[in-house]
Computed example of a mutant assay.
Amino acid sequence: MTSAGWRWADAWIFVSVVIAGGAGRHRRAASTRRPEGIRLTDVLSTADHLNRAIPTRRDVEMAVRRLVGAGLITVADGWYQLTPAGATLWRTRPRCGLSTVVDTLHGALNHRHAPGAAEWGLGDDEHGAAVQEYLVRRMDTTPAPRRSPEAGPR
């Protein structure tokens, strides 16, 4: 892959936007998806689920610039959304399992689209706040340890 081609992180962020926004669900109608899009916290959460890592500010910023420039996603007022061209790319990609979806999409991007170069920036404070929100959310969903019913209330 040349330096002008798509990076793996670009595909990772794209797939995260798709799945977090609900477009990745099998046969889900566009009218049942979040019309406003998703927040950065949702993108980071899904990315962590896919790769067991939270994308850096630089990874997100570079990927979004390239994806927006290529017309595959939009970002407006902090809301990330798949475009019709992005939805078409997702629907027509080679089918694969969740464990290889980012790699498969990376190949599809390199074969079908050229990366764009939109002007867009992500501040350290905005990324940091989204990471913190995600970490708090993740801690809140951790199940409590199981206790014996005989133990009674605490």
Rank of each mutant, 00 (worst) to 15 (best):
I38Y: 00
A30C: 08
T46Q: 15
L82H: 08
W79H: 11
N51D: 14
N51A: 15
N51E: 15
G86V: 03
D59T: 14
R33C: 15
D77G: 12
E61R: 04
G24C: 10
R66S: 11
L82G: 05
D48W: 11
G69E: 04
G37Y: 06
G78R: 14
A76M: 07
E36C: 00
R93T: 11
E61Y: 03
I73G: 06
I54Y: 00
A47Q: 14
P94Q: 14
G86H: 02
W79Y: 15
P55R: 14
P35V: 12
G21L: 03
D42I: 00
R34S: 14
G22E: 01
V60L: 02
R25S: 11
S45K: 11
W79G: 02
S31K: 14
R33D: 09
S45E: 13
P94F: 04
G37C: 11
R39K: 11
T88Y: 11
E61T: 10
G24W: 02
V60P: 01
V60Q: 01
R28D: 00
V43A: 01
R57F: 01
I73L: 12
D42H: 13
Y80T: 10
A20M: 10
T83Q: 08
A85G: 05
E36A: 09
R65W: 03
A23I: 03
L44W: 11
G69K: 05
V60I: 10
T32L: 12
A20Y: 05
R65S: 12
L44V: 12
D59G: 12
V43T: 10
R25T: 14
M62K: 15
L67G: 11
